[in-house]
């Protein structure tokens, strides 16, 4: 863009496009003039015309430019449309209400799962065994390597930290109690639950969320298939089967980590370890861990599916749902674990 100023008149040359609006605007704010001559311009785009029309200055134009300006004038409306603006307190209120609504929807979802679940128990043939098997493979079996590694390391780390203190008292053998009780009662189940909350619930949410966006869920409904039969119950059943098995694996692998550290840094032999293990734990210790499994499994599967169903029809919403799904399921699992701890203490397990 080039400029030529003559008294109250400005002549513009070159390419007058959206790119030079800012440049000309700066000039226009500085100088006073009341006529703009465009006839020398090589290129004039509609964006620039809109800007010029808004300045309310007299325009000198060529015949061809006039046609273009007329088109713009014809389509340009003066009445402004309102853009909604919200205040700070409105935002807080809105957020609170939407969180409460979210919780409400989750309770509704749980109710649906319960009622449709009863229905399913009456007609167990509707249960999709193939889907359950596939899900167990993906979510249970494929999680074995990472789970075994994590719980092994946790077991080893606990034994290692305990070892330093226990050595001071000469109570080396109690490393067995330390490792086995903490892993079996608390850490094993919790590691499984947190790992699956990250691994499985996010995957469930994405699957259902995208199916909702692409209207696949509506297709399922129109085929007369109950979406919960295909999308929710196989996941719940698969988790109910996988979680206890994975907890057993985590228990074994965690204790194994303890055994190795006990041998290396405390000199407790495998034989001593196993003998002490019989005194340290009994079936109650194991049950205290494994009894949490159904609750964890149910929470992970339902929260994962629920967040999927809550996904809106836009791409950003998928990201939000997955975040919600992982955060909420980990939160729920830890709350559940706390409740179990209190419950077991009352019951004396």
């Amino acid at each position: 863009m080039r400029l030529e100023s003559k008294g109250k008149k400005v002549r513009l040359f070159g390419n007058l496009t959206y790119k030079v609006i800012k440049e000309f605007d700066r000039y226009a704010k500085k100088e006073t003039f009341n006529e703009i001559d465009l006839s020398g311009a090589e290129l004039l785009d509609t964006s620039f015309i809109i800007y010029l029309l808004k300045t309310n200055k007299k325009l000198a134009v060529s015949e061809k430019q006039k046609q273009l300006i007329d088109i713009v004038k014809k389509n340009l409306k003066d009445r402004p449309i309102k853009i909604k603006k919200t205040g700070f307190f409105y935002d807080i209120g809105f957020l609170t209400i939407s969180k409460l609504k979210h919780l409400y929807h989750f309770l509704v979802f749980l109710g649906e799962v319960f009622i449709k679940g009863l229905d399913l128990i009456l007609k167990p043939k509707r249960l999709r065994f193939k889907m359950i098997a596939k899900d167990i493979e993906l979510m249970g079996f494929n999680a074995i390597p990472i789970l075994a590694t994590i719980s092994f390391l946790i077991g080893a780390v606990i034994a290692y930290h305990g070892a330093i203190r226990l050595k001071q008292f000469g109570a080396n053998i109690f490393v067995v109690d330390l490792v086995s009780v903490s892993v079996l009662r608390e850490l094993g189940p919790l590691i499984v639950a947190i790992l699956l909350a990250g691994r499985s619930s996010s995957s469930y949410t994405t699957q259902i969320g995208i199916m909702k966006i692409t209207e696949e869920i509506d297709v399922i409904k129109t085929m007369g298939i109950e979406p919960f039969d295909v999308l929710v119950f196989p996941k719940i059943v698969s988790m109910l089967i996988s979680v206890p098995l994975l907890i057993i694996l985590a228990d074994i692998s965690g204790v194994l980590g303890g055994i190795i550290v006990a041998k290396l840094s405390l000199g407790v032999t495998l034989r001593d370890f196993i003998l002490r293990l019989h005194h340290a734990i009994d079936i109650k210790t194991f049950l205290a861990g494994i009894l949490k499994a159904p609750a964890f499994a149910f929470l992970i599967a339902t929260i994962g599916s629920f967040e999927g169903f809550m996904t809106q029809k836009n791409v950003e919403s998928i990201g939000e749902s997955v975040t919600d799904s992982v955060v909420n399921s980990i939160f729920a699992v830890i709350i559940a674990d706390a409740i179990f701890s209190i419950l077991f203490r009352w019951l004396g397990i």
Binding site: K19, I21, K22, D25, I50, K54, N75, I81
Partner: peptide, 28 residues
């Protein structure tokens, strides 16, 4: 593409919507 004031962008967008025959209400 360019550094343009929001209210001009606003007008340009409304013009283009009108040009393709869309009602203003779709803006939001």
């Amino acid at each position: 593409g360019a550094n343009i004031d929001n209210n001009i962008i606003f007008d340009i967008v409304r013009f283009k919507l009108s040009l393709v025959g869309l009602d203003e209400n779709v803006f939001n």
